[in-house]
Amino acid sequence: MPQLNPNPWFLIMLASWLTFSLIIQPKLLAFTSTNSLSNKTHTPQKTSPWTWPWT
């Protein structure tokens, strides 16, 4: 059965894995996040109940 022959597919998988891990992944990991975390404490806003006009 030709599907079980790993000869051409193993080299394709190895080349794509090496391309991703050595070239693409370091470029993706080099990006910095534009939304940096801050040390601000979150204060909940005071909400007032909604007044329904029909009640």
Rank of each mutant, 00 (worst) to 15 (best):
A15H: 01
L22R: 13
N39K: 08
P8H: 05
L22P: 00
L29S: 08
T19K: 08
L11Y: 04
K27A: 08
F10M: 08
F20G: 05
T32I: 03
L28E: 04
A30W: 11
N39M: 11
T32Q: 08
W9M: 02
F20I: 02
T34D: 13
Q3W: 13
L18F: 01
N39G: 12
P26S: 01
H42D: 05
T19C: 07
H42M: 15
N35D: 11
K46W: 04
T41H: 12
K40D: 12
K46D: 07
S33I: 07
I12W: 08
Q3A: 14
N7G: 13
L37W: 15
A15C: 09
F31R: 10
W9H: 14
P2E: 05
K46N: 15
P2G: 09
F10P: 00
A30E: 09
S16V: 09
N7V: 07
S21A: 06
S16G: 01
A15D: 01
A30D: 05
N5R: 06
W54R: 14
K40N: 12
L11M: 02
A15Q: 04
M13E: 10
T55K: 11
W52G: 08
S38Y: 04
P44C: 10
N5C: 12
I24Y: 03
P2R: 12
T55N: 12
P2V: 09
M1K: 12
L28A: 05
L11P: 02
W17Y: 08
W9E: 00
S21Q: 04
T47H: 10
L18Y: 01
M1S: 10
S48E: 12
W9F: 05
L18W: 00
A15Y: 01
W17V: 02
W9T: 07
